[in-house]
Design a protein around this nucleic acid. Structure first.
Lengths: 244, 244
DNA sequence: CGATAACTTTGACACAGATCAAAAGCCCAA
DNA sequence: TTGGGCTTTTGATCTGTGTCAAAGTTATCG
């Protein structure tokens, strides 16, 4: 993990300036945030926080992907969030975190010291309003995931996950039409996200390949050959997945 | 459904005054809320909102239990929230709701007109701060439920659910030690909450009865005979379920 | 560049929980 | 008090996904 205090990047050039917790802030408020922020970078696989750790920072994901997961005493793991650029880590008014956070890919975080950040939250409505919005969006996403975990078949889970990767990588401006998309997780991590085993993930992914829905350039990078079939396999309402 | 505008109850006598979205408000602010509130009551089974409905109101649950669920095109249902006293319904800044809300028991809601409520949210920090807290609590609960749905066995799911009923009914002040506790849902509704079938719910509940963990006075009311065994069956960490 | 570890695929088999079916219990209305 | 419609229980069987095992592939590091 690397702290990047001195070359603290300018907010004005930040790729998530208009989506993250700071998105509603005016120049003055951004100035205040810059005082308490620092960039930290992590390598793929680095642990960021363990359950029970002190939360001295809260943070926004600037670049890369982090996972948020819960572990049972006997080792069963369930991922409860996949954090991509502009997503928020940590909970103001809580001193500790109650799940594990790990960098899934190379990762850049914009970290705010928790206590001063909480003060801003109390005094700057632009921050608290945006954080409420982010929390409510997360809650909606969590509820969609509950439907997936509780009721979808393995095939539907995989199709939903792949579709989500397509959608989010479009938003991030990566993955231009011609470039292959990326699975930012290993088969094992995907299985923990979807409530499956890694063997089932592997089988279902290969089934979609054999059926000509997906095409893989390597284990991580792929293209969607048949978007309609992918969506049909997800089990979601016909109007829910329209991209353009 | 009955609207109770004229006999609008006093906030000062409200059972959820100190837990709901209004809990941080001072006398002035409560006064403002009283202008835009009205009580509505529903009978068990009454639908409250369907997916896609206009959200003209947001509301707090005052008394009773409501369910929040998602339905797939082929009829599979997953409950994504169980709303009990002090829980909040609706999302400011959204004009429609994206799941079905149904009264599971006789239900009293304290409804606020959405648009004026949103104005208060923007101007009264005590409301927005409390709503953020409520949203974050919901998010934590949703994540616990994701672990349950994705990784727990049928038995663990049932035990977790029963334990949750015990805990919440203590908080609500109902269910004094000697009184039997209540399952506010049918077997079918429980199965939709836990991602199971109603047959599995029935079998697991009867298994806990046969093993002497629970004792039923009728189909809905029960007592916990062996709290330690119940907790052990839930799959949760040993320190997570201590009540006293 | 070779070896050693990490990840992925594939196959055979087992089992928890789903599905299908029917009986039993409970509740209310007439 | 009786009948009919719910909800719940119980039983028999089926199946999707997990488990166990081994081989294949790709990445990493000395």
């Amino acid at each position: 993990m690397t702290v990047d205090l001195l070359t603290r990047p300018k907010c004005s050039e930040c790729p998530i300036r208009h989506r993250a917790v700071c998105s509603r802030c005016d120049a003055d408020e951004i100035e205040q945030l810059e005082q308490i922020k620092s960039y930290k970078t992590f390598a793929a696989g680095d642990p960021i926080l363990w359950r029970g750790d002190d939360l001295t920072y809260v943070a926004s994901v600037v670049k890369g992907v982090a996972t948020l997961s819960k572990t049972m005493e006997d080792g069963r793991i369930q991922m409860v969030g996949l954090l991509m650029p502009s997503d928020f880590i940590g909970r103001p008014d809580r001193k500790t975190i109650e799940f594990d956070v790990v960098a899934a890919t190379e990762l850049t975080l914009c970290c705010f010291q928790r206590v001063p950040f909480e003060k801003m939250l109390a005094t700057v409505p632009h921050v608290s309003q945006r954080l409420l919005e982010i929390a409510l969006d997360e809650l909606d996403a969590a509820r969609d995931w509950m439907l997936l975990l509780g009721r979808k078949t393995a095939r539907e889970k995989i199709a939903t996950f792949v579709e989500m990767m397509v959608r989010r990588q479009h938003v991030d401006g990566l993955g231009l039409n011609t470039e292959p998309l990326v699975l930012p997780l290993t088969r094992d991590e995907i299985s923990n996200y979807l409530g499956l085993t890694l063997e089932t993930v592997s089988r279902q992914l290969n089934a979609l390949k054999k059926e000509g829905v997906l095409q893989f350039v390597d284990r991580r990078r792929f293209e969607v050959v048949d978007m309609a079939a992918l969506h049909a396999a997800s089990g979601d309402d016909s109007d829910g997945g329209v991209l353009f």
